[in-house]
Nucleic acid binder design. Structure first.
Lengths: 183, 183
DNA sequence: CTGTACATGTAATACGTTACATGATTCA
DNA sequence: TGAATCATGTAACGTATTACATGTACAG
């Protein structure tokens, strides 16, 4: 049920319409909590019904400006500080790794190398974003910058791991020679 | 739709009942693709309807032993090699980071330190698992060992990042001093 | 003979994705 | 005046979670 809190969190920073929120979701939040247009509008109506946000103004083209209410802020703080985060994550890429014994070592290595390249590309995109942000810092996005740093470290780790894993798969057989580096 | 392929992948290694699969999901696959008992039994019936698996034996207590079919193996290979993995992931922990400007720096630091400890604990658990596996290697789980190495690197990165991020939040104000280490 | 583990299934509910559907404003 | 953007909403479908529901076999 975190979409609810994502919306609340954005509206806590500044009021806005569903359309405004949608753009934020597609840019800064896309990598941590993707959401569709459909989901957003539905959730805003639900939040309004629950009294956690309220329509504060109506503009042209039926635009509704939403603002967080006191009850909404209370709920947001409660969630941030008292609700244990759900740390478990699904990873389709990693699920596939478990089943790589079903294909030839060559195909397995190809898969891992592709993953490595994807990670490197993602890393590069984030580096560019980080440079743009650092050159022209948005004071509202300071914590977003912490999240971006996470992304940089994550993609780097991912890339290094994929390279290492691909190397484990030798041509001598389907059994990779698992000998992790010392740590 | 990856649950389908997760089941297929497990049955490709060895045949088994829904109950057998459930235990595998709760142990080795729990960290990459969680699934519930309810989901598994439903999926097995769907897979059997689609002809990708088949009941090869019936045992005591209504036990049904499932095996992958040729069509199932074809589908598994197709998925592994030709379907682009969904790399986008949701992270509730990271979502919260975006909204840490809503609480005091102290509370923000506390949150990050807690995340760091959680990562360290997860890392420790994985280390122990890795030691057990390396001492008594299961030839069927060699690729699982690659995934475990991913987990070790991930939790370490997570822990280091959380510590770094907590340090960014000084007592002088809500703005963390973002100065990422050189890379 | 009793508790634990084995074993399977369905129903209700919630959440997410895709597609459909509509219309107003602005800018070139 | 036509295209792009702004702006909101609903319906259908698929997937995931939780709870309910039931029964068998085996070990101590």
């Amino acid at each position: 049920m975190s979409l609810r809190h994502a919306v609340l969190g954005l509206l806590a920073d500044r009021s806005g319409s569903g359309y405004d929120l949608l753009r934020t979701f597609q840019s800064s939040l896309a990598n941590v909590w993707p959401a569709t247009q459909s989901q957003l509008y539905t959730e805003l109506n639900r939040l309004a019904d629950a009294g956690l946000v309220a329509v504060t103004a109506e503009g042209p083209r039926g635009r509704k400006e939403y603002a967080i209410t006191d009850a909404g802020r209370t709920e947001l703080h409660h969630w941030l500080l008292e609700v244990e985060p759900e740390r478990q994550r699904r990873s389709e890429s990693l699920l596939r790794v478990f089943f790589l014994d079903q294909v030839t070592p060559e195909q397995g290595r190809t898969y891992l190398e592709r993953e490595g390249r994807a990670a490197a590309a993602a890393h590069q995109g984030m580096r560019e974003l980080a440079e743009r942000i650092d050159a022209d810092p948005d004071p509202l996005a300071v914590y977003g910058r912490l999240a971006l740093e996470w992304g940089l470290r994550f993609t780097r780790m991912q890339q290094e791991w994929a390279q290492w894993a691909a190397e484990q798969i030798t041509e001598r057989g389907p059994q990779p020679q698992v000998r992790p580096p010392g740590h």
